[in-house]
Amino acid sequence: MSIALQVTDLAKTFPVGKKLFGGAKGAVKAVHPITLSVETGETLGIVGESGCGKSTLARMLVGLLPATTGQIEIEGEALNTADPAAFGKRIQYVFQDPISSLNPRKTIRQIMNAPLKLLHKMDGPAREKRILEIFESVNLRADFLDRYPHEFSGGQAQRIGIARALAAQARILILDEPVSALDVSVQAQVLNLLADLKREFGLTYLFISHDLAVVEAVSDRIAVLYFGSVVEEGRAEDIFANPRHPYTKLLADSAPVVGRPISDPEDAHAELPNPLDPPQGCAFAKRCPHASDICRKTTPRLEQIGADQRVACYHPL
């Protein structure tokens, strides 16, 4: 297996309170140095709650945000310029809100034409042929091409978003909450389409979501993000069944499951860490029932535990 995407120590810090001249007052570490690799043909799921840095990570991976430090290698080649056009041919993005990711004043044909024309310099007839092929593979009718985005339902619009990503002929897709804006019956349609496309075109996915069950259903491996760091990584079937990090366990216990009695798995109501004033040591220590002195002093590193699992914890479960 070859590595499709290798991320080494990728981090992002946002300056806060920037002035017209001179530097910023403070800095928020949205993403702490992250090292991840995704094999060709694999789906890596990324879960985390709001504010954990998953969207910032995704936007860095496609070049929409320049990374503060670290590097991104796609299919063995380093990409260090934050230029979406350079990234575009290799890695593409599917957005959370399908309707707002389509320009309301352009027809679907114009939207589909852009990547083919600008990234691949195709001529008119070749573009038309390619668009029809892609539409065929995402089960959309060709007469949709002359319509405007507001005429589509969420599920159809998300297929168009996927079609646009495919048009760039990237082999890696970043799927940023691709189904969370959709109804459950439509959600399954889109997830199945994604699975079919992956098989057909040999794609590699990075699937970002807050919905544990969805991530588990589509991923080969899962990385759990908390406060900008990967706290645990492992195979999809193991990670929630057999969590080693207390946070992963908290997530798994919180998810509503049919047949489990209602309970609040977290007794203490510790406040979430403040990004402007991050705690020393492990960010989860304040909420963690197993935290000890070392947890509050130094940040644990992500280390191998068991055959296929990595965890950043001094006291793994």
């Binding site: 936007r59 496609v62 070049g63 929409l64 979406p84 056009a85 990234f87 575009g88 593409q92 993005y93 957005f95 990711s101 389509l102 320009n103 939207i111 852009a114 990547p115 600008l118 990234l119 978003g161 646009r164 760039a168």
Partner: peptide, 8 residues
């Protein structure tokens, strides 16, 4: 963002 990724 999508337009940027389309190479614009």
């Amino acid at each position: 963002d999508a337009a940027r990724l389309s190479g614009m």
